[in-house]
Amino acid sequence: MNFLDRNIDFNVLLKFSHISPSTQQHLKRVYASFALCMLLAAAGATVNVMFHFLQDSFITFIGSVGMILWLMGTPHSHDNEGKRLKILSGFAFFTGIGLGPALNLCIEVNPSIIPTALLGTAVIFTCFSLSALYAQRRSFLFLGGILISGLSLLLLSSLANLLLGSVVLFKIHMYIGLVIMCGFVLFDTQLIIEKAEHGDKDYIWHCVDLFLDFITIFRKIMVILAMNEKEKKKNKK
């Protein structure tokens, strides 16, 4: 039998029979908001890299935290939807600005690190998101406790490394942190589905979870690539 003669329905790949139609519509809003956040974060990062108008990471951190607290304090309702989208946009823009110093460091080491890290993050995020969407419902929710425990251990190790100053421990921290964040993409995606199935349609807040996952993975990949590039340059000398 000639494989090329077979009729392949690629629309089947876009069907999620285990997810209700209302939740599928909710996911469309979540990912549309996510796309908006990515554009605004890219705009914030680009402006900061080009004009260096706000290099104080503490100020951008305060701005991001202020926006997220404002969003938390604004109830989810139809009347507040436009306001909450604006707050979300401000949060994404501040987050992008906060990437400025890390981006500048990568540019100094090797500018190609940034597009490589962005592409790698996009591939990782897409693959793990699709895995969560196609998998049986609630199949990855058990990861929640494991991931939180892993983050706690990483926090303790990072505090310990402030005293030790070990480069090896820092590298291990970055690689394990990357694996944990990949797990969070699986967990958060399925958690969003479950919340939506049970009536929680706050797509703006659900977008925040995925956006933070993406940004954290992007940061870690940038740092890992930058470290590897520095080691290569040292070995060549």
Rank of each mutant, 00 (worst) to 15 (best):
I87D: 01
S57R: 10
C106L: 07
L178V: 06
F58M: 05
S152L: 14
G63K: 08
G183V: 06
I193V: 05
P115R: 13
M67R: 04
G183H: 03
L130H: 02
H78N: 10
L163A: 15
E108W: 02
L88I: 01
G63N: 05
G100C: 06
R137F: 12
A92D: 05
L99N: 02
I176V: 13
N80P: 14
S152M: 14
V65E: 03
S131P: 05
A117L: 05
L169K: 09
G100Q: 02
S158N: 10
N104K: 11
I146A: 11
L164F: 14
V109H: 00
S158M: 07
G82Y: 09
R137A: 10
S139C: 10
L162C: 04
I107R: 14
V167L: 13
L156Q: 05
I68K: 04
I59G: 12
G66A: 08
S112V: 15
M181I: 02
C127V: 08
M181R: 03
K86G: 10
D188H: 01
V168M: 06
Q190C: 03
S166W: 06
N104Y: 09
S112C: 11
R137C: 07
C127F: 11
V185N: 00
L103E: 06
G120K: 01
L159V: 12
L169F: 05
L156V: 08
S89C: 09
I180F: 01
G150E: 01
N161R: 09
I176T: 10
L88E: 01
I124Q: 14
G90C: 03
R137Q: 14
S158V: 06
G90H: 06
